[in-house]
Design a protein around this nucleic acid. Sequence first.
DNA 1: GTGGTCTAGACCACT
DNA 2: GTGGTCTAGACCACC
Lengths: 119, 119, 119, 119
Amino acid sequence: MNFKTDRPIYLQVIDDIKGRMLSGELKVGQKLPSTRDLAKVYQINPNTASRVYREMEHEGLCFTQRGTGTYVTEDEQIWKKLRSDMAEDTLKDFCQRMSAMGFTEEETVELIRHQYRKI
Amino acid sequence: MNFKTDRPIYLQVIDDIKGRMLSGELKVGQKLPSTRDLAKVYQINPNTASRVYREMEHEGLCFTQRGTGTYVTEDEQIWKKLRSDMAEDTLKDFCQRMSAMGFTEEETVELIRHQYRKI
Amino acid sequence: MNFKTDRPIYLQVIDDIKGRMLSGELKVGQKLPSTRDLAKVYQINPNTASRVYREMEHEGLCFTQRGTGTYVTEDEQIWKKLRSDMAEDTLKDFCQRMSAMGFTEEETVELIRHQYRKI
Amino acid sequence: MNFKTDRPIYLQVIDDIKGRMLSGELKVGQKLPSTRDLAKVYQINPNTASRVYREMEHEGLCFTQRGTGTYVTEDEQIWKKLRSDMAEDTLKDFCQRMSAMGFTEEETVELIRHQYRKI
DNA sequence: GTGGTCTAGACCACT
DNA sequence: GTGGTCTAGACCACC
């Protein structure tokens, strides 16, 4: 993964994991990589990897079982919140861009419909 | 500006300038900063700044007047292409994200309308 | 300060600071020691001191101003919660001890009254 | 058991045993563990375990029967003193804490009654 | 000066 | 093997 320089690495890793959760790559209750493996995958220090899980646990995104590992949360509320937060960010950014490019609401909607049919 | 590490800086600068052109910050025929100033603004090497304009000129995004400077293109076709290319990228990325999060076409359109009314 | 071995240092430091907050030694909005000073006072690593403030901020017990320092929270709700939590812990522990020693409710109350008059 | 670093271990062990005596876990005339077993239980040096009983015997808390072992005292006066000393310490500490947190005598009494009803 | 982050390497407790 | 903590020392951005 390639990190930007203006944002803490641990936050960028968290964002990436959140994306994998929402895309379905990581599912409810699934075991996450060990901190050491996470460190290898993202090429970061094990301590930083540890912080990733610590902060995520703090947000309720995962939970840990001593001695066995870290797991994706099973709390539905958290999943809902994650999904809506992520969607809001994506939406805001998108509408700002389209608006800045001069597209009206109707034009944008039309393009969306067109694009969706391609997927 | 913050650069990623996985993409040539000059391309990231060009993307940024394209954005400023589409947002209206940079207008038709407007004078662009000198390569030296560009280097200062983006905190990049003057050679890199030079390459930025060379590549942009190659794409038709700007033109150089010997002795006076570099100016934003006045070619309408280029502007149209820029606008549609940029929109397509933005659209693709957006629809993929929303789709990955499990939003249907109708849900997305509804959210777009809602968001547009906030802007 | 003397640390127990069965509890993370940073939590023991937090407990100590909470006590100082409730005893009035640390007041609303007051500047806390810099992380480096905190490290010296408690003879811990600056990183551990940093973690103390990070966790405390997370609990809403303090807030940081970039470049200037860390300050005791001004949120009344947090203060109320801190006070009630601390009181509950103290109470539980006390009543369990007295009960274990065989003192009845009335005997304990009588002893409390007697002790309060000495203070 | 977890020891603090600022107080001799043998004193901390004695405090712990006193607590077990008052809580009824250790009763009048009951046989105490051998010094070897005591050392194992508390994970301390056998010499330290030996000192524990020596000091306790000096306080009259236990007595030794050559060849058979060490036993909890049967002296009622000692038990009374132990009970009142322990209670006094507990009381002092408790009232100081509550007072420091700003609770009045009446508030404290009210909370005690409330807590006792939970036990 | 302040806090924030990152790396490196160590030790611990739990399973 | 797992995560959790701690120390050491470094660099950064902000004020």
